[in-house]
Design a protein around this nucleic acid. Structure first.
Lengths: 166, 166
DNA sequence: CTGCCTGCAAACGATTTGCACCAGC
DNA sequence: GCTGGTGCAAATCGTTTGCAGGCAG
């Protein structure tokens, strides 16, 4: 993320805390900063590992709780994933994902044409749509290659639990 | 599901097993039949409860394993959900979902216009797209009503774990 | 100073794994 | 009969909860 955007996000982070009367702790700031710089879509566990580089003593559950808070403040997004663990995403504007059916990798994708898709005709009293995103399922470059030339065992590298067969 | 479609699905179920050389056990058949009739998107646990009505002694882990097999045979779909537990879906053609941000309910939606959305421009050597589906996030009728008239505590009925803030 | 936050430990729910037994082919 | 599926128990993984102490406002 470029410095200007990053600063804007940090300002927004502080403003959201002020508005909600939440204290800005080192931990919250560190977790948020750790997420901002990620291009992938880390699990809570991965965020924990990243944050420990700046705050070695931070606990896993604090990371979980902070992530929950950040999500409910609308500062980060929780993106759903066929795997078991939740993924977190610093991008909160509308965007879409390529999801690899083999390894579970999530690739960010944005295309203005995808922001103009029709809304399904639903009775507004039955469901009100706020936003949407699209999951494109397929195979990433690495897994294509792996399938083409199974060097070792065909089941060389198992996909993360629950990732397959979306 | 109407009887004709249902029979077709059962035939396909048998054919897939024959092709793969997998034995057609009572348990597998019962699990598949239990899923076929669901309009919701049950968790493995819910499938287990349903199957026990016909096979009272079936164990939870058999249901898990059978669901995994059915998914890899392409007979049922595993749909990703912001909540913690995986959901299973008898519908294997392209379709989309309305997901309630409050209670996590999944509502099936199909609209021919949604089958003609543009593919994002991705380098095919980086990712090959097989299919896609759209998650429309919002609020279902029940939760809208609940928000409008909070009878008891505002946090009367907690959403399933991890459901919020997608 | 007060309240929320943090950290620890333990509980919890969903899912997986190892092993003995049983059933489909 | 052989192969693989099933059931049981226990382990595992991600996440949540209850409680004592700490820090931001």
């Amino acid at each position: 993320m470029n410095p200007a955007d990053r600063q804007q996000r940090l300002d927004r982070f502080l403003a959201a805390h002020r508005e909600s009367g939440l204290p800005v702790t080192h931990q919250r700031r560190a977790v948020f900063e750790a997420i901002l710089d990620r291009q992938d879509h880390p699990t809570a566990e991965q965020v924990h590992r990243a944050v420990r580089q700046s705050l070695p003593q931070i606990s896993r559950m604090t990371v979980h709780r902070v992530l929950g808070t950040l999500v409910s403040l609308g500062l980060v997004a929780k993106t759903c994933h066929p795997g078991s663990a939740a993924r977190f995403d610093p991008r909160i504007h509308r965007h879409h994902h390529l999801v690899c059916l083999d390894c579970g990798a999530i690739i960010y994708v944005e295309d203005p044409r995808l922001n103009r898709i029709p809304r399904p005709r639903v009775n507004p009293s039955e469901f009100t749509i706020q936003d949407y995103n699209i999951h494109f399922r397929g195979r990433c470059a690495r897994c294509q290659q792996k399938a083409r030339s199974p060097r070792r065992k065909p089941t060389a590298k198992r996909a993360p639990a629950g990732t397959r067969g979306l």
